[in-house]
Design a protein around this nucleic acid. Structure first.
Length: 562
RNA sequence: UGGGGCGUCGGCAAGCGGUAAGCCACCGGUCUUUGGAACCGGCAUUCGCAGGUUCGAAUCCUGCCGCCCCAGCCA
């Protein structure tokens, strides 16, 4: 099971197991509770929890809550919910970096005592100026050589709350001339008089990410600390701290490329703007790449997991085609969603030779490719139906197999239907109704005389169908790279104005009991899920993803080169 | 112009000195009571470029070129 590494990280782990460096693998997913999880996080979650499962180890959920000014309990809850929804569990291993504040503080004093950290009185601006640039070395702070006693005293008074925010910091004493800026005496602690969502007002100094992350990993016995590429420059500091502190373990940081998706933005800042500026209805808007948005969109968590597995894991910056994600969604839904009929854009059809007032209950399988799998439902049939407006053409182009004057098609699970006449609005010329006839001998969809029809269309009985609000979602942006905007404009200029279209549809009666979260395929249209906005008597569906539409492709090609 | 990474098909991505996996997309075809699904077939003589080592190089060496990250008291 672990003999075939899928990527360079698993290769490293397998080697560590083989050489006996580790006997148990421990990973962690370390979100900062300051925002909602998105598909990019899913890549990391699937990686970390997936590795733990594959190698019989464990994966911790640890909140990196070292900055009280931007973190909130609300996010902790949504993150927990999203990871569970994705299908992963950490058992007892729920941790918070804030649980380690006392230990972290002790280690800070340890560093001071060892002469490897000092309290700096320089302002933030001064520290920046002293740091130097990418090409020029920095210069030491005038406070760099304070005595251990003075540093200890100052640091304890920082903790005691004697100094205002920004007045002093604790810095590691490493090398102001290091070519890696992270090693130019990085800040370890800063003063922040803010209420922390877990520790309240117990602290007014907080460790920086660099001082908290690696040490938290060590405390938890993390063997492989997996993070994204931008932390590669921090690894020397990560290792420096682990080496200079009496930590109980020596975790190894390994970096991988973060996920980018076409037609999608994933930065926290941009996602926040979409929400706050009202371009979407909220973090769980079905057009958002957040896990809560995708959940509401009807995307199964299994699809996200297989997507993450298939895109692989490497160190090169890359952008995955969103079509790859859509494929995984369809692939999953194709195997799990019940088939029903829903007419999105209704066109009235009157069957002239069908008895007025009569209704038949037709049997239809929920899963035609394997009927026993999901059973049957009953679909009422009567004299007046609705069919999809685009399934009729008065002047059908070549290769159009659907309904047209004088033509015959099959009504799914019902009868053959022939169009006899077209009724139009005398003023607008718009087609308002079709007068048709049906062949009673074709009940169920097959003709005893063996004649064939090229097309099968879906339908709904007008008297029995349920009205439903259907929200048709499309990509939020109309460019593969939303940031590719005209001079002076930003990604918002690429918002797709057609990302949401709402239609009043008619769906088959069996959907009366559909509950929020249920997923269906509306045959020939796409996959839909029941939105939580649904109320008794008011069904609301979200289109998760349309079906592949070969006809649309053919028609487009014919228009381009007839 | 310092340091750290990375460059294999339109997009992901295997490959670890022995003669370019797979997936998506795309293009054909079969089948079909979803123009869905399924099934069959096509799709890199070539691995950023240029040299070199070798019987043999995407894999080793050298030099270029390109892209990403780093100058928060964010993570």
């Amino acid at each position: 099971m672990t003999s075939e590494p899928k990527d360079f990280i698993r290769e490293i782990i397998r080697e560590d197991l083989r050489t006996g460096k580790h006997t148990t693998i421990v990973t962690r997913f370390p979100p900062e509770p300051n925002g909602y999880l998105h598909i990019g996080h899913a890549k990391s979650i699937v990686l970390n929890f997936g590795i733990a499962q594959e190698f019989g180890g464990r994966c911790h959920l640890r909140f990196d809550d070292t900055n009280p000014s931007r973190e909130e309990e609300e996010y902790v809850q949504s993150i927990i919910e999203d990871i569970h929804w994705l299908g992963f569990d950490w058992g007892e291993h729920l941790y918070f970096a804030s649980d380690y504040f006392e230990q972290l503080y002790e280690w800070a004093e340890y560093l001071i005592t060892a002469g490897e950290a000092y309290v700096d009185d320089l302002s933030a601006e001064e520290i920046r100026a002293y740091r130097g640039t990418l090409t020029e070395p920095g210069k030491p702070s005038p406070y760099r050589d304070r005595s251990v006693e003075e540093n200890l005293d100052l640091f304890r008074r920082m903790r005691a709350g004697e100094f205002p925010d920004g007045s002093r910091v604790l810095r590691a004493k490493i090398d102001m001339a290091a070519s890696n800026l992270n090693l130019r005496d990085p800040v370890l602690y800063r003063i922040v008089h803010a209420t922390h969502h877990r520790t309240g007002d117990r602290w007014c100094i907080y460790p920086m990410y660099d001082f908290a992350h690696g040490q938290s990993d060590a405390i938890e016995g993390i063997t492989h600390s997996l993070c994204t590429l931008e932390f590669e420059n921090h690894r020397p500091l990560y290792d420096w701290l682990i080496e200079h502190l009496p930590v109980p373990a020596r975790p190894r940081q390994i970096e991988f490329a973060r996920l980018n998706l076409t037609y999608t933005v994933l930065s926290k800042r941009k996602l926040l703007r979409l929400v706050t500026e009202g371009h979407v209805t909220g973090w769980d808007d079905p057009r958002m790449p957040t896990l809560s948005g995708m959940r509401r969109r009807g995307i199964p968590p299994e699809a996200i997991r297989t997507f993450c597995d298939r895109i692989g894991m490497a160190k090169r910056d890359s952008t995955v085609d969103v079509a790859q994600l859509e494929f995984c969604i369809r692939d999953e839904l194709n195997r799990t969603a019940r088939r029903v009929m829903g007419v999105l854009n209704p066109l009235r059809v009157v069957i002239e030779n069908y008895p007025e007032g009569q209704t038949e209950q037709l049997e239809a399988p929920y899963y035609p490719d394997d009927p026993p799998k999901m059973g049957m439902r009953t679909v009422p049939f009567s004299r007046v139906l609705y069919i999809e407006r685009e399934d009729f053409r008065e002047d059908p182009p070549k290769k159009f197999f659907r309904l047209a004057p004088g033509r015959e098609v099959r009504l799914r699970w019902a009868y053959f239907l022939r169009c006899e006449r077209v009724i139009k609005d005398p003023d607008t010329g718009e087609i308002t109704e079709l007068r048709c006839t049906y062949d009673p001998a074709t009940r169920g969809g097959d003709a005893p005389d063996g004649r064939k029809v090229r097309g099968t269309i879906h339908w709904v009985s007008a008297a029995h169908a349920l009205p439903a609000e259907v929200r048709l979602y499309d990509r939020l942006f109309n460019r593969p790279n939303p940031d590719d905007a005209p001079e002076g404009k930003d990604f918002l200029a690429n918002l797709n104005p057609g990302s949401l279209t709402i239609v009043e549809a008619r769906v088959e009666a069996s959907l009366a009991t559909a509950a929020p979260g249920d997923r269906y395929q509306f045959e020939r249209r796409g996959y839909f899920t029941v939105d939580p906005d649904t109320r008794p008597g008011h069904l609301v569906f979200n289109r998760t993803v349309p079906l592949r539409d070969t006809w649309a492709k053919i028609e487009k090609q014919m228009k381009q080169r007839p």
